[in-house]
Write a protein that binds this DNA or RNA. Sequence first.
RNA 1: GCCGCUGUGGCUUAGAGGCAUAGCGAUUCCUUGGUAAGGAAUAGGUCGAGGGUUCAAUUCCCUCCAGCGGCUCCA
Length: 624
Amino acid sequence: MKLLLIHSDFIEYEVKDKAIKQPEETTIKKGRLDEALTAFTAVEKIDEKSPSQSVKQTADEIIKTAEQLKVKNIMLYPYAHLSSNLASPKKAQEILIEIEYELKQNNYNVKRSPFGWYKSFKISCKGHPLSELSREIVPVDEESESLKKERKLSSYWNILTEDGQLLDIGKFNFEGHENLRKFSFYEKEKSRAVKQEPAHVKLMQKLEIADYEPASDGGNMRFYPKGRFIKKLIEEYVTKRVVEYGGLEVETPIMYDMDHPTLSKYLQRFPARQYQVESDKRNFFLRFAACFGQFLMAHDATISYKNLPLKIYELTRYSFRREQSGELTGLRRLRAFTMPDVHAMVSDLEMAMSEFKVRFDLCLSVLNDIGIENDDIEMALRTTRDFYEKNKNFLIDLVKKFKKPILIEMWDERIFYFILKFEFNFVDMSDKASALSTDQIDIENGERYDIKFTDKNGTQNHPLILHCSPSGAIERVIYALLEKEAMKMNKGQKPMLPLWLSPTHIRFIPVDNKFIKDCEEYVNVLKNISELYHIRSDIDDREESVSRKIRDAEKEWIPVIIVIGEKEKTGKKFTPRFRAVSIGDSNKSYSINELFELIKSQIKGFPQATSPLPTYLSKRPKFK
RNA sequence: GCCGCUGUGGCUUAGAGGCAUAGCGAUUCCUUGGUAAGGAAUAGGUCGAGGGUUCAAUUCCCUCCAGCGGCUCCA
């Protein structure tokens, strides 16, 4: 529904010719209203999907404005030209009549100009700031509203311990489980102790990782070379792990037809959350997950029980969710994000559960390897009471794998499409919790998308589907890594990115220009020593003092800093500044080969890439 | 989306109804260096955008945009 509201001294119209085949029958050819709020309206396709919601929301919006302006007269004026995606005339007329009725119920003096006619009209707009307003109304589906209410009413929050005790949140002793306490209360009470801006925002800018892009929509970030590099490596790593697990990597479109029979039903539940794209006469929405493409692909595939579990994987760049503007922050919550998404089609619940376990291990291992350890995350399970009772030991086994108590939310009845879901949540310095890895057992969409596999007996069945993101959104992983380092800084420790993600491993600092040549030689030795492992080294060739260059390198979180002068040149040994004792010993000397081995041993198994920036610092622009 | 706060060169910031501050960074020059800032000069501004009040607005008022905090939300 599109609305154009005009606070007018008067509005008058006169009916001329038919605009559509069967316009509204009317005997009144002229109408006028003084001191009125004129509401030009265009009923749109989307309003047809939940007309009663549309009526209610539109009436509410008009009433709100009328109250502000203190007017009692309302002219409801159909004006098709406000939208290029109109509802059918019949529906539109019905909706307008309903709105008129609704407004009259609220004691407004309402006139409605007849539908489907060309009319001449005169209007006098008052011209003050509030006198001209346009509004777009997207009806919120009533069913989903009620579902949400129901969910809130009947969900139970508990803590499940490793030894299988199920305790009420209020009764659990959170001593030694500070983050679980924060996470639990964040989830249940939405309460927050600390109120400050997230620490990673400054860091992502200072380190030239990512930044806001004012020329785009909110939550669509720009990534600088270093950020793109880090993001790419994480993407590659997650993909590698999923492919090893057996995921078949695919690529699917980012936009889908809103009127596609299978998708539209699913979409109706969340109508306000997508970006929409128009192309000729069709309307598309930008995907908010990888499900659509993969399910449609699976729908057309011939699948035998022998193929199960069938794992399909895509790294979506991007998935889009039009989160409310007030909810967007830094890299934590975005409108465009990169999501690894691996589905597994399984034959039955038994296979689903055994696969769930495999993927649980995968998620935990992926996060750990990226640099987010068990101590950094809290686990949540969400399920039905029934599933819990029947599979208690299965769930407790998961808690044992996680090695600390978890939050469990239960419903009396299944409300969503899944019966079991787990999440690993990161709790940041502001006590906000964000989900990283997740997996769920979906028992609805196999049928909804009509995906079929043939079983031993030759009969066709719908599979159950597991939805998993082993790491969560890649941007959010970066957020978590940065927040983790910010916490370290708070404790007076040096922050650092994991070695495999550092854009520069070794910074060479010549004490004099004449040693630049030697630095080049070392960089080349490191480059050529192996084709498999890339040690990323660079040279600070700027006209600055040595201590200045060291300071800048430290500010850039460079893991290994080496000053090159006469001593190094002749001795062929270096005494680097290691950012952490875990990398190396700053009191010892290393040859170039020893350095290579040292770093190699720590980046083995991770994606390898050469530096994203010029070797010489003098060649690098400052992006921030 | 709602309520509140904020918006001054690339960055951090001072200021106030009447010539717009400084530091960092950049550029040029000097310095030719040994483990967290060597020195000097120069350039760089529609004071977030649009409208209004005023002789005069970056400053006051309104609208919009963006960021932050809270609410809501997170399929």
